[in-house]
Design a protein around this nucleic acid. Structure first.
Lengths: 204, 204
DNA sequence: AAAGAAATGTTGACAACGCCCACTTTCTTG
DNA sequence: CAAGAAAGTGGGCGTTGTCAACATTTCTTT
């Protein structure tokens, strides 16, 4: 039976995010248009504007979904791990693995930061974002290590930034490597894990 | 005197890259259209297509100009430095400083990697790119350190990737911080330098 | 339950864009 | 100096984001 065509879609906002996510994940193109999404959902071209002020806001929403997924990936293999260094390394590995599994989404999440069109207030932004928990997971783990006297060379803020920067850079580099056209960075999970350990706890 | 309106522009290709660069640098918007650039240069909307197969190719060209500038920034304060660690740290600082000075361009350079439309052959890409020298500068410095027995924990390839990843991640994070809406990452040059030293040579 | 308000979806329109085509003008080179 | 290549032009097509005005449905309040 064909579904009854209702005037109201029912849950257009969520559907738009989901369809947009699938579109990005499909990897065909990183460009997603409101119109094509609307078409796909069988709704008129302007319906999305009832749920998102403009295109940037939808992208931000999708990116935020991505941050939620990233958080999950970072905490995936953490149960039972007590050692702070191992915990931190596993968090990092989860981060990189997410970026490899969802390259388009990952790229979009950080590209979204540059979309200036989306000018929410800072408070508005923070309250709705899934980013802070992700940041806190890292920050708390490092705090644990500092308090245990294991990390001694940087302050909490700087150490957190440093750790994040490394896994973030690693992810970006691996992701862009083929498109940028220099020798492949095809690292195994083990190699990534070892790199993280070395850089964060030992140095080159 | 008004310039004589010639049918041929004279050096449209270079002018397009320059105008595009200025547009990005101006910071008003990261979106640049072929049509607007053509207008700006007093040339018809289709003239750019005589010099760039499509929009992606122009963007790639601008990004490449950026990589050349990045190389300059990385080598800026290197004369007379003998110590490998100090050299590497200064290269890293030059990298981060470039990204802070040219946030839009920096973002574009790496976003360009994801524009799939530009499908040159790998050889074609490498031969024309300013990226390899940048990569080599880092790689050679680390090689020097490995051969001197200073860097012992990772292989050349992995160490190079690790070093690049860190400064790249640091740059991206600082650049995106405000837009992403979490506590400011306003680091001084000294703090950046110290972070680089710590992460690359000591660990947290 | 009826009426008014709020949410949600629709159609039409406009300007901008990338890009294709056929055409014109200028430059280069035999 | 003629022929062909290189560079620039104008028209046109399909797509997009976004605004405004209108229609329908659902919620709220009396």
């Amino acid at each position: 039976m064909a579904e009854k065509q209702k005037y109201h879609h029912g849950n257009l906002r969520k559907s738009l995010i989901k369809a947009g996510l699938e579109h990005i994940e499909s990897g065909r193109t990183e460009i997603l248009s409101l119109r094509s999404l609307a078409r796909e959902l069988g709704v008129s071209k302007n319906a999305p504007y009832r749920h998102f002020k403009n295109r940037s806001y939808l992208i931000k929403a999708i990116a935020d979904e991505g941050f939620s997924m990233l958080y999950d990936s970072m905490t995936e293999n953490l149960t039972g791990i007590e050692d702070v260094k191992e915990k931190l390394s596993l968090i990092g590995l989860g981060y990189v693995r997410f970026s490899l599994k969802h390259p388009g989404l990952y790229r979009m999440m950080f590209a979204a930061a540059g979309s200036v069109k989306c000018s929410m207030s800072k408070a508005e932004l923070e309250s709705q974002s899934n980013l802070p928990p992700t940041f806190l997971l890292l920050s708390d783990t490092i705090k644990e290590g500092i308090e245990a006297g294991i990390f001694t060379h940087l302050g909490l803020k700087e150490a957190t930034i440093a750790a994040w920067a490394f896994v973030h850079g690693l992810s970006s580099l691996i992701n862009d490597s083929m498109a940028l056209g220099f020798p492949g960075l095809d690292l195994t999970d083990e190699a990534i894990f070892r790199s993280i350990e070395t850089v964060l706890f030992t140095g080159l």
